[in-house]
Amino acid sequence: MARRLSRRVVTSFVAERLQEGDKSVVKQLAAYLVTTRQIRMLALYVRDIESSLAKKGDVIADVTTAFSLSAETKKHINAFVAAETGALSVSLREHVKSEVLGGLRLHIPGKELDTTVQRQLTTLRTQLKKA
């Protein structure tokens, strides 16, 4: 029986192939997940692939705000992510969620910048609990 590979090894391989432009690897990964009964781990595989891609210069950033962003702001965020991570290309995914109340949450693989009012309230709640 073949040795089960760690998620990190598999995702690193997939990311490498994707960067080389080999889209067939997606089908191969899907088949691998089905045969190894890991379909419910799909989200984690996607996260790990994004992580591997980010290390190689392709950053996918998720930005969450209470209101939709203007094109100018998106451009600034793009530049900010590129400067912070040294990425060669940045893809921005925008999410509008009213529960963040204000500010923005910027998530790049493995890292997060959270300046939302929601987070500040959570921090405040914890501090009040401790006191």
Partner: peptide
């Protein structure tokens, strides 16, 4: 601001939590 390294909770139970990320 500054980026924090983040992960997500995978499973939790009996006082033990399993986290993805935070390498």
């Amino acid at each position: 601001g500054d980026f924090d390294e983040t992960g997500i909770v995978l499973r939790v139970g009996d006082g033990v939590v399993w986290v993805h990320g935070l390498r």
